[in-house]
Simulated assay, not measured.
Amino acid sequence: MKIRNLAATAGVILSTVLNPSWADGTSKSMQSESTTINLAGHQLPVVKGGLYDRYRSNPPLSVIEAEAPDIDLSWFRELKKERVDIGFESYSPNFYYKNSRVTAIFTADLDKLRELMPAQVLEKVQPLQVWPGRGLVALTAYAYHYCDNDSYNEIGLSVITNRPGSSSLGPLTLMSQAMSNDFWGYVLKLPVNTELARVRGVVGYNLPKWLTGINYRETDKSVIVEISDSETGKVDVTIEARKLDDLSNKVSMVTNSFTNVDQQGRLTTGYATSRQLSHASSTSAEAVNLSLTEGSLSTFIKSLKLGKMLKYEYVPEFQSALYSPRPL
């Protein structure tokens, strides 16, 4: 029981990217038109007149303030962007001004998790073993309502690991990460619903992204996320997560880092820092209902042999800064 409670303190591994249209209707009107740009040799559509079309990941904060005056930009004013070459010219960190997410942390088959991670990565990090034969995965649905890449939705499925160069002591490592709000993982799957997010993620961040339909919507009591199968177009995975009442408005800073392999075969690491403005958590198994079908992502999730959900995080409002990867 102690190990189970300790595991439940785990937070979210990797916020790297995510959406419905912007709340004030601005993005909705802009999304009626698109234009084509060239990014790293890929021809892809972006919102005509949107932030990315105009500023390529480097919009002045004065523009954000004018377009979305209700957003608190104080944190972003403290951060400095730098021009970087990540397979295309960009700026780091990438800013996410208004976002939402829900996360469920499950136990999973430890041998299967190791099997899915490249040998190079396993030399540096290991899945955390919370009890014999069981590791942890974090399943997160993100809605990026307003960011440097306009707006999009994303689903992250990540293995929770130790930090590179540190010992993997299972629950003790998990507790250390939870106490410092500094989490590490290896990303298994990261579907998105815009081509801009896909190309930037694959080319620039070495992440396993593909394009598919992701419907992120809310009712009075729940957040409902429907993930389509990219080949059939049918709903593949459905996440129904409860809106929690005991929300904290105390700002919480969380860092989520990942280790992976770039297109040259080199080990790299990247991270995102999130400023959580409204958040709550629960260990009740009834807080999240995960519905699987026979689709490709459902089949993959089934192969992980998920066990009991240990923790659920409901974060209706957060901001984030995603930093470009660097060699490990």
Rank of each mutant, 00 (worst) to 15 (best):
L211S: 03
S34V: 11
I227S: 02
C147R: 11
L44E: 06
D150M: 09
Q276F: 06
T232W: 06
G295E: 07
Q264S: 15
A138C: 12
T36N: 14
Y97F: 15
D85C: 02
L110K: 07
E195N: 07
G170Q: 11
K250T: 14
K98M: 09
L306G: 03
R56A: 15
W75E: 13
L290F: 05
G41T: 11
P208V: 07
H279Q: 13
L139T: 09
R198Q: 15
D111E: 14
N19T: 08
S27Y: 07
R83F: 04
S281H: 14
R242M: 12
S281K: 12
S180P: 00
N215C: 05
T194K: 13
I160W: 09
S90V: 10
L322Y: 08
I224K: 00
S228W: 02
P208W: 05
T255H: 06
E313R: 11
V84S: 04
G185R: 06
Q43H: 15
T103L: 09
E195V: 04
Y144W: 08
T36D: 11
A7C: 14
E123F: 06
F106D: 01
G25A: 05
E313A: 05
G49C: 10
N181S: 15
V12T: 14
F95Q: 02
T299S: 15
F95S: 03
S74I: 04
S90E: 09
F76S: 10
T194E: 10
R275A: 07
G295D: 05
Y216L: 01
G50H: 08
S100Y: 02
L122Q: 12
L136R: 11
G170T: 09
P208S: 06
D182T: 02
P20S: 11
T238W: 00
L174Y: 06
Y312C: 10
D109F: 09
N162S: 06
A141N: 05
E89F: 11
S180R: 14
V202F: 07
N181D: 13
V254P: 00
M30S: 02
S303M: 09
Q319W: 04
D72M: 08
E313C: 01
F88C: 06
I86W: 07
T9E: 13
D245P: 02
A40Q: 06
R163V: 10
V130W: 14
S176Q: 14
I227L: 14
L304R: 08
N215M: 03
T16M: 08
D150Y: 12
W184A: 00
Q129A: 15
S291M: 07
W184V: 00
D72S: 01
L244Q: 03
A241I: 04
S158T: 08
T273W: 04
G50T: 09
A104Q: 11
D220Y: 13
S320D: 10
M309Y: 04
S15F: 13
S282V: 08
Y271W: 11
S21K: 07
T9G: 04
V63W: 11
A108Y: 05
D24E: 08
G204V: 13
